[in-house]
């Protein structure tokens, strides 16, 4: 009997897969297995009652020890198998998962949500505005002169009723000031429209995110500080920024904010057109007249505003070469932006 057990243990030690162990179980403990047969083939009638008892006890012990040995081998191999990705009992768990998958979000939704979270983390509230705006909020209240070219039919979509499709999210500035007053820290993401011919880099429909901060004694130094902090969060690393003059009627002084090219580190490459800088955010201190339109006391408060092109940020971030894809309705485009919010 001990020989059988020794033989089993030797066989088990050689077994490399669970099916082999199973074969060994059948070989020793199956209906025609050697241990089973040992019991069957013994002529108990020739044994004394004591012998019978003793034989039975030894046989049971042998069975138990054989089963233990087999279980142990099974567990050993199962654990190995799990770590090696091997098959078990004929079930192949490495087959591909079913094709049920996530849907997808519009890339603008992703980038908008990301920026909202960054700004909310800096204490900005997120406000919504109107896509159909009045000339007052889109132009007049932003200190844009009545004869400014931006108001032309060539640039702005006008409605029959005299309203227009907002040309920039800046249209929210005075609305927000009127409603919430100063101090305020807010962003306004949204869709904007300009009467432009469409090509790979021009769309008549695009997305912006406007930011406004009005408080006591807000200065150019604050604007640079906030922009730098914000852009470091957007690009997940320290960024270098610079301001240069830019003219927009609703800010004074007005700036173009450039960020040092993240691809070449400022040495010049194709992305930054060899300049080392990428023009990113038009911004400036809010024009006192705009604050006055928003009924803010300019003796106490000042502020800054900035506009980010969400569409442009998405193109940069995801490497999208053609702006027309955003409104293309083509699943193969959107599918590349899985749910991540």
């Amino acid at each position: 009997m001990e020989e059988i057990l020794q033989q089993l243990e030797a066989d088990l030690a050689k077994a490399k897969t669970l099916p082999e162990v199973e074969q060994l179980r059948v070989k020793y403990l199956g209906r025609k297995g050697s241990i089973t047969l040992l019991a069957k083939n013994t002529d108990f009638s020739r044994l004394s009652p004591d012998e019978k008892r003793s034989f039975g006890q030894r046989l049971n012990a042998l069975k138990n020890r054989a089963e233990e040995a087999i279980q142990e081998a099974q567990q050993r191999l199962a654990q190995q198998g799990a770590s090696l990705g091997m098959v078990w009992s004929g079930a192949d768990l490495s087959l591909p998962s079913s094709d049920r998958r996530f849907g997808a979000m519009h890339p603008i939704s992703l980038i908008q949500r990301e920026l909202e979270e960054i700004f909310q983390g800096m204490g900005f509230r997120v406000l919504s505005g109107y896509e159909v705006e009045t000339e007052y909020y889109n132009f007049d209240a932003l200190n844009i002169p009545p004869d400014h070219p931006a108001r032309d039919m060539q640039d702005t979509f006008w409605l029959d009723d005299g309203r227009l499709l907002r040309t920039h999210t800046s249209a929210n500035q005075v609305r927000a000031l009127e409603r919430y007053g100063a101090p305020i820290r807010a962003i306004f993401p949204g869709r904007c429209f300009r009467n432009e011919a469409i090509d790979a880099s021009h769309e008549n429909t695009f997305y912006q995110l406007e930011g406004l901060l009005v408080d006591r004694d807000i200065s150019v130094a604050h604007l640079i500080g906030v922009m730098k902090t914000l852009l470091s969060a957007v690009f997940h690393r320290e960024v270098t920024v610079r301001l240069r003059p830019g003219f927009f009627p609703f800010v004074e002084p007005g700036f173009e904010l450039d960020v040092q090219c993240l691809i070449c580190g400022g040495n010049g490459c194709a992305t930054c057109k060899r300049s080392g800088w990428i023009e990113l955010i038009p911004c400036g201190l809010v024009h006192p007249r705009v604050l006055e339109f928003g009924r803010v006391d300019t003796r106490i408060f000042s502020g800054f505003a900035f506009g980010m092109g969400l569409t442009r940020m998405a193109m940069m971030k995801f490497g999208i070469p053609d702006i027309r894809l955003f409104n293309s309705g083509d699943i193969r485009f959107y599918e590349q932006f899985p749910v991540s919010m």
């Binding site: 996530f102 849907g103 997808a104 499709l165 409104n327 959107y334 749910v339 919010m341």
Partner: peptide
Amino acid sequence: RRVLAGAHQFIEVQNYI
């Protein structure tokens, strides 16, 4: 967006106004 795209396989698109 989370419910439709995250749990029900919907794909978000944007069309013109």
